[in-house]
Simulated scan of single mutants.
Amino acid sequence: MEQIILLCMVSICLSAVQAQKFLFNQKWGPAGYKEWRGVNEETAMDKIIKTNELKATQIIDGAATLREGDIAVSSGRAPKICFARSCLWSKSVDGHVYIAYNLSPEYNEMDTMLIKTGMANIEQGTCVRFVPRTHQRDYIDIQPKSGCWSYLGARGGRQTVSLQIPNCVQVGVVSHEFMHTLGFVHEQSRLDRDNYVTIMWPNISRDRLRNFEKFRTDTLGLPYDYGSILHFGKYAYSQRGEATILPKDNNNIQLGQALSLSHIDRLKINRLYNCDDMDD
């Protein structure tokens, strides 16, 4: 059964990529879009950029704005407070981190399957478990609002995760947004990122330079992860289709992921939530 579901998802992803190549091109596509030559080159963040930039999504969910392209931040609230470990989801006595969710009835059966596959992506090899909400006070409300975005970490009470139909209902995009929900920012936001990548500032759209800021985040003692599902792709927010991020020493290194978490992504989750006994 799992193999059948996986084959269906791959088929859907391939169809979506072909449709996107028809709908977008470099001449008039949104900022940050590049005409991709291969399916494997387009990361989850690239898909998010195409959706969010096309919708010109800047002010969302009332008074909240987007940082780094898809992280919702409420007015007057510190965007990086998660790394003081003050907005982590509660850990149960059984060692798991249960995240209750409500799923909008606007999603059809296929949408629901893809979203749950994105959840399973997070759960595999980690202590996180997504459970349908019953009575929980703190929970995520998954809605097909405008764009793909999430708040950073647990805020308390109901918090929205936006997965617009159909652009954001893709396994890699769903997993990317849930990583933000768990409390993680983008990989190239690490304070030590300049040791590993070069930011090509002249190639970035001038009104998107802030998306490449660095922050003093907790690296959890883990190495820089070029292949993280939270890493920007090489052409993120490019103004002329030129690379905006290049790996140092080896330009052939793939940046980011399209579908799944990397091994280090899973280690990050377990270390942040003190579930190291699940490390492979």
Score class of each variant (00 low, 15 high):
Q3D: 14
I4P: 04
I5W: 07
I5G: 03
V10D: 14
S11I: 01
C13M: 15
C13F: 13
K21M: 13
K21G: 12
K21A: 13
N25Q: 13
N25P: 09
Y33F: 08
W36P: 08
G38P: 06
G38K: 15
V39S: 09
N40W: 15
M45D: 06
K47S: 09
K50V: 06
N52I: 01
E53Y: 03
K55E: 12
T57Y: 06
E68W: 07
G69F: 00
D70S: 05
D70V: 00
I71H: 02
S74T: 05
I81V: 10
I81C: 08
R85C: 11
C87K: 14
C87W: 09
L88P: 07
V93C: 07
I99G: 02
Y101L: 08
L103P: 03
E106K: 04
E106Q: 06
E109V: 13
D111S: 01
M113G: 05
I115H: 00
K116W: 02
T117C: 12
A120P: 04
E123V: 05
Q124W: 09
G125L: 09
T126I: 10
T134H: 13
H135L: 09
H135Y: 13
R137L: 15
D141V: 01
I142Y: 01
I142M: 03
P144H: 01
W149P: 02
A154H: 11
A154E: 14
R155H: 14
G156E: 13
G157Y: 11
T160P: 04
T160I: 12
I165M: 05
N167W: 05
V169T: 03
V169E: 00
Q170P: 00
G172C: 01
V173Y: 00
V174P: 02
H176K: 03
F178M: 11
H180M: 08
T181F: 07
L182A: 08
G183W: 04
V185M: 13
V185W: 10
S189W: 11
L191I: 15
D192R: 10
D192N: 14
D194K: 12
D194R: 11
D194I: 13
V197Y: 03
V197L: 11
I199M: 11
M200G: 05
M200C: 10
W201D: 10
P202W: 03
I204Q: 02
S205I: 08
S205Q: 14
R206Y: 15
L209E: 14
L209M: 15
R210N: 14
F212C: 03
F212D: 03
D218N: 07
D218M: 04
L222N: 07
L222M: 09
L222I: 07
Y224E: 01
G227E: 15
S228G: 10
S228Y: 07
S228P: 05
S228V: 05
I229M: 07
F232W: 07
G233E: 08
A236P: 02
S238W: 02
Q239T: 06
G241H: 08
E242N: 12
E242W: 10
T244Q: 02
I245A: 04
I245V: 10
N251T: 08
N252Q: 09
I253P: 01
Q254L: 08
Q254H: 10
L255Y: 06
A258S: 10
A258V: 04
L259K: 02
L259P: 01
I264V: 13
D265W: 05
K268D: 12
L272E: 11
L272N: 09
L272D: 09
C275W: 10
M278T: 10
D279H: 07
D279G: 02
